[in-house]
Write a protein that binds this DNA or RNA. Structure first.
Lengths: 188, 188
DNA sequence: TTTTAGTGACTGACTGGTTAGTCATTAAAA
DNA sequence: TTTTAATGACTAACCAGTCAGTCACTAAAA
């Protein structure tokens, strides 16, 4: 699956040959078909296993938190940034956004299980801050999009532009700087 | 080229058949090869023609502006948001980010001509605001990424998730709301 | 101990369907 | 008539998925 992720992210799903995946994994193509019924199943498994792990941890983080919301925002972005830098989740995000429409089952699953869970949780958090007088009256939905968007940019920077020779981006630094901007912008 | 863009964005470059592009354009495949030497040339032309038009207008906007920077920020985001909503540039962005690594010539051209031009211009703008005492002392590079990222999110929302049934996103509203957040966050 | 039987992960040549790009030919315009 | 535009059948290559067979290893039987 690591081999497949690297190749899918580099060349695109359709342009990646099963022979290549097998070779990179140190197997023959036949052996691949002992573990995955077909090519799409490989993609699907890949996305589901990776996506599931992160959302769970982040949800836990938000649910467990009590008291003022402001200190939680840099923690959330820091957590995501760390995942982006130390795992291959950036490649998975690129894969889902790139191939999600061509493989609706995968795209819809991500929309429902990841975005559909994470966005409402974060919106609730922002709304809590507003209700408690900690934040100005803002549109929680819009704030969540503003809040999370730089992590999307970072994912593509790492998986598309850095391999092309672009200057490396410190995702952690961006996360910290951005969280600070948002917290300031939300002050009453 | 409209036909090609729609299909490349929907199914991915490698999975799109030249016959389909031709059919959608109301031509035969042979006729397509009268205008484009091969499939990659079609993709390349597509990206270059679209990308060039927007960066030029935005650069003009920034270069022409004098006086305080704050009022310019919502104008820039509003301009980009309007392009995202009324043209098919969202699909081009998706295409570049998805296929840029597999076709380095395209990816690098975008990195140099679009990102490499737009980012320094915007950084200069932020730096000007800081120098003039209009903004706090911030990292201009980080601010630019925070500033532009929601437009990237919007591009993928429109080209990947809305076709899968996700709730439509008002890019203009997001742009306005986000510009307001950033301007507030930059206040000394 | 040696032989026989069995297992299952793995291989790689093969097939059938698919598709980028070509080109001889036709149709329309000048 | 000549030139330009367009067609669509064709080819050569490619690749997902298959399957008959290999081989290292285990365990029961002799």
């Amino acid at each position: 699956m690591d081999a497949a992720l690297a190749l899918f992210s580099e060349k695109g799903f359709a342009a990646t040959r099963m022979d290549e995946v097998a070779a990179k994994a140190g197997l023959s193509k036949g052996a691949l078909y002992l573990y995955f019924p077909d090519k799409v199943a490989l993609l699907k498994t890949l996305v589901q296993e990776t996506a599931g792990s992160v959302i769970g941890a982040a949800a836990l983080m938000m649910a467990a938190h009590e008291g003022p919301v402001s200190p939680l925002l840099p923690l959330i972005l820091g957590f995501v940034a760390e995942k982006l830098e130390t795992s291959n989740i950036a490649a998975v995000i690129k894969l889902v956004l790139s191939e999600g429409r061509a493989h609706p089952e995968i795209g819809k699953a991500y929309l429902e299980n990841v975005i559909g869970r994470a966005f409402p949780l974060m919106e609730g958090l922002i709304a809590r801050g507003v209700a408690g007088g900690e934040f100005r009256a803002v549109d929680a939905g819009m704030v969540v999009r503003s809040f999370i968007a730089p992590m999307l940019l970072a994912a593509f920077w790492k998986s598309t532009f850095e391999p092309l020779g672009a200057a490396p981006l410190s995702v952690r630094a961006l996360a910290a700087h951005h969280a600070d901007l948002i917290v300031r912008a939300l002050k009453p």
